[in-house]
Design a protein around this nucleic acid. Structure first.
Length: 529
RNA sequence: GCGGGUGUGGUGUAGUUUGGUAACACGAAGCCCUGCCACGGCUUUGCCCCGGGUUCAAAUCCCGGCACCCGCACCA
């Protein structure tokens, strides 16, 4: 028999244990969609909450929540309508598909056959309103909801840069052919942070703490990954700025803390022709998976001023900030009203306007009654003023694919051990993301032990510790069930519990046990999760 | 989207060649047993991906669809 790979075993287990299901399965399923079951939902929530811990708590970013449905004009302005497409040509003769640019004289580059062209926009289209039918899309990223709120958000942040805004939510991409299970979904969860910087100051106060961190980097043009300290990567110009380096480090720490194997993480810089239409630099966190190789799970992109500029141009709403540290001297022209009025009479407003629109050093002309008249210094004075520089903030965006990361966590923590000739599955999840923190069992289902165990389970839940009571089957079977969903602790009530008020607590990964007093359980567990 | 493969209880499989409506293991539920790692007994549950065709009769043959897997292409 051919051994199943981890993917197959994991997905079968995931279905059995309420982690991941194919969506709409009773209707035959729908490619590109998966459900999270009861255990999977808790796992995903825990991962998202830990992400909040990193980005909202520690980085002090602000979380917002904006609609999935996005009006046409927003995504037109952002470039998604025009750029988020695939122009595809399919050869009628040999069936091969190509990008339009790859065609030779409009023919198939392989066999020279006639091709059929098609344009695919990867966004799901919908409409708003029953009668008006305004065109709209399901968002392809959560980021735009943040950018369009920039004026309000920067006011809320009291104009201090840098500041970050995050959003966790669904994104939608109508993939041409979704494959690889939960790794390529049409509807997926993403956690994105948009961090706004002064263009010349992409720095982070935390950089010093992480600069000696050694990470596996695969910079553009490199054949294979190499280990660099972040300090060195910055010095060599491999990573463009400290902020980018800092978020690479933060991403690494986050992934490791939720249980991704740190040996299986690398950061790969996009090749220039691979960059998204909005990005001028991007580093992906890639995670090594047994079946799929290196998989992009996080993209950390420098979007420059692209998006804010796009929305500013499209709406006229000001997206610029003032740099109060940078004064620029500027000569401005002030019209001399009395001279202008006497000379030009009813044409005066036109002259005033022309002066206001001119820069120092320009020749100023107006046309009156078909005659071109030069406005000289009799009509204005030059004044030197100092004003602050204005700029459109730049954005660095760490964007996390939660589903891919969740799968990676499952795969990297899936362990099989031999137990009496049978294979035994343990999901060695870090306690803090484990869906269930404790299983609570009576050693035997009699003599009042179940009652004590039920009380303990209730006590744990009341104290915010997710616990599950189970008295079905043998004790070993109950341990096994909990091991498979990654429950770090199992509490067993035995006869000694009745005498001295202690229970055994079993560690998932070692199966070792220790006795803990029932009244100290909450504290004991809280410390360890 | 193209080509190939696959689709049988919740899971993993046998049965498909040669047509006669399904079996095994594990699981799950109930009862009993049970003094710590998938114990045992009894009982129960539950499957031929969907639609059409051929046939007296289809899990089995044919056509179409869907899903999954592999390769090609695509993947901001």
């Amino acid at each position: 028999m051919i051994a199943m790979d981890v993917y197959e075993k994991l997905m079968a287990m995931a279905k059995r244990r309420g982690i991941i299901y194919p969506s709409y399965e009773i209707y035959g399923g729908e490619a590109g969609f998966y459900d999270y079951g009861p255990i999977g939902s808790m796992l995903k929530n825990n991962i998202e909450n830990l992400w909040r811990d990193f980005y909202v708590m520690r980085e002090r970013f602000m979380e917002i929540s904006t609609p999935v449905i996005t009006p046409y004009r927003v995504l037109k302005a952002s470039g998604h309508v025009d750029k988020f497409i695939d122009e595809i040509a399919t050869c009628k003769k040999c069936g091969a598909s190509f990008k339009v640019e790859e065609l030779k004289d409009g023919k198939c580059p392989l066999c020279g056959g006639e091709v059929e062209r098609g344009v695919l926009n990867l966004m799901f289209e919908t409409s708003i309103g029953a009668k008006k039918q305004d065109k709209a899309f399901l968002r392809p990223e959560t980021a735009q909801g943040i950018f369009v709120n920039f004026p309000l958000l920067q006011h809320f942040a009291r104009k201090k840069l840098p500041f970050g805004v995050v959003q966790i939510g669904k994104g939608f991409r109508n993939e041409v052919s979704p494959r690889q299970g939960v790794l390529r979904l049409r509807e997926f969860s993403m956690a994105e942070a948009e961090i706004f910087f002064h263009p010349d100051r992409k720095m982070h106060p935390g950089f010093d703490k992480v600069k000696e961190k050694r990470l596996k980097l695969l910079p553009e043009g490199f054949e294979r990954e190499e280990i660099f300290t972040l300090r060195k990567a910055i010095e060599k110009g491999i990573i463009q700025n400290e902020a980018m380096a800092y978020y690479i480090a933060l991403t690494h720490d986050f992934l490791v803390s939720i249980g991704v194997d740190k040996e299986k993480i690398r950061f790969r810089q996009h090749e220039r022709d691979e960059l998204a239409h909005y990005a001028n630099d991007c580093w992906d966190a890639e995670i090594l998976m047994q079946r799929f190789g290196w998989v992009e799970c996080v993209g950390i992109a420098d979007r420059s001023a692209y998006d804010l500029k796009a929305h500013m141009n499209s709406t006229g709403v000001n997206m610029m900030l003032t740099d109060e540290s940078k004064k620029v001297k500027k000569k401005i022209l002030k019209p001399k009203m009395d001279a202008i009025g006497k000379e030009f009479r009813k044409n005066a407003p036109m002259v005033i306007e022309a002066i206001k629109n001119a820069d120092y050093g320009d020749d100023i002309h107006v046309e009156i009654d078909g005659k071109k008249i030069t406005i000289d210094e009799r009509f204005y004075e030059v004044e030197e003023v100092e004003e602050y520089e204005k700029f459109i903030p730049h954005v660095i965006e760490p964007s996390y694919g939660i589903d891919r990361i969740t799968y990676a966590v499952l795969e990297h923590n899936y362990r099989e051990v031999e137990k009496e000739g049978e294979s035994y599955v343990i999901l060695s999840l870090p306690s803090k993301i484990a869906p269930v923190k404790a299983g609570v069992f009576p050693l035997v289902s009699k003599d009042g032990l179940p009652e004590i165990a039920k009380e303990i389970e209730e006590m744990l839940r009341e104290n915010g510790i997710m616990a599950v009571y189970d008295d079905k089957g043998s004790i070993g079977r109950r341990y096994a069930r909990m091991d498979e969903i990654g429950t770090p602790f199992c509490i067993t009530v035995d006869y000694q519990s009745k005498e001295d008020g202690t229970v055994t607590v079993r560690y998932r990964d070692t199966t070792e046990q220790e006795r803990v007093k029932i009244e100290e359980l909450v504290e004991w567990l809280s410390e360890k999760i």
